[in-house]
Amino acid sequence: MTPHLLLFYLFATVAVAAAVMVVSARNPVHSVLFLILTFFNAAALFILIGAEFLAMVLVVVYVGAVAVLFMFVVMMLNVNFVRMRQGFLQYLPVGGLIGVILLVELILVAGTWVVADTPEAIEPRPTTAGLTNTEALGNVFYTEYFYLFQAAGVILLVAIIGAIALTLRDRGNIRRQDIGEQVHRDRASAVQLRKVKSRAGI
């Protein structure tokens, strides 16, 4: 058993165990923390197969942004997870059965996996010889996968529009800074001279 393999089983086991904890933990904060643990282990698995760029992205994006956001949401909303879980046992038999069936089937499927015997077939595509991960990805992003990359961009744009459309509210009582208006203010519009009579007020 090479150290490589040992490490793989270690990280994989921890990742699966943490994933189970995500759904079974009673405290939602613990759930999110286990989720972060799962991400870290997945990142470690990526490093094991030499995909260091993906590992970094996983940590930065999922741990750094997504999981933290989750944490905020969980803490702000104060959802009663215990109550939500009440029906859990009721559906367990059927749900478990379906889950087991699917699992068995997928294992059967995995059993039919054959690795092609020619070395070219298992080469990574595109060939990464002499390039770092980052360079290799960059090379195909804007060439072969240009279309998909752009499509992903449009999806993000739509996500922004959607989020704004659903949540942004023009509250009348909030003051906003309008820089254009500030800059355009001149003396005539800003200052009013009034003669004030003594003891009369304005």
Binding site: Y91, G95, I98, I101, L102, E105
Partner: peptide, 20 residues
């Protein structure tokens, strides 16, 4: 919603089993 999701999963499981 979880009934619906469940129905979908049963559907998939059924179809896969059918083929197996």
């Amino acid at each position: 919603v979880y009934h619906y999701a469940f129905a979908m999963l049963i559907g998939v499981a059924f179809l896969v089993s059918w083929y197996m």
